[in-house]
């Protein structure tokens, strides 16, 4: 077996042996996400109580939920950084598209 193949096999074995959280851990994460969803939804019933804080609060909660799901449920936290890079490049391009849209239609169109 060549050195390259041996290295690849070793890396592959490492990738399979990565830390896998228990079912209880995932249940706790799901409960945390459920609580965040309940807080998000509650802003609908008390819009006056939050007034101008509602939108920033909702965006922060959305980012926390998004981050928790991709990092823990999708295993990015425990997997190779190459997988994270693949996803973050797409995500970054999507945000770039939104910024370009916004500038094109909100500013340049005036």
């Amino acid at each position: 077996m060549s050195a390259v193949t041996e290295h690849a096999a070793h890396e592959h074995h490492k990738a399979h042996d990565h830390h896998v959280p228990t079912d209880q851990y995932f249940i706790k994460v799901a409960l945390f996400l459920a609580v965040l969803t309940a807080i998000e939804t509650s802003t609908y019933w008390w819009p006056d109580a939050l007034s101008s804080f509602a939108t920033p609060t909702l965006i922060v909660l959305m980012i926390i939920k998004f981050w928790t799901i991709i990092r823990i449920f999708m295993h990015l936290k425990f997997d190779s950084p190459i997988f994270s890079a693949m996803f973050y490049i797409g995500l970054g391009l999507a945000l770039f598209v939104y910024v370009v849209y916004l500038f094109t239609f909100q500013f340049f169109a005036r």
Binding site: F87, G90, L91, L93, A94, L95, V97, Y101, L102
Partner: peptide
Amino acid sequence: LGSECLLFGGLIST
């Protein structure tokens, strides 16, 4: 999934 971000990014922006 990275490419899907672009699809939904475009739709959400619109």
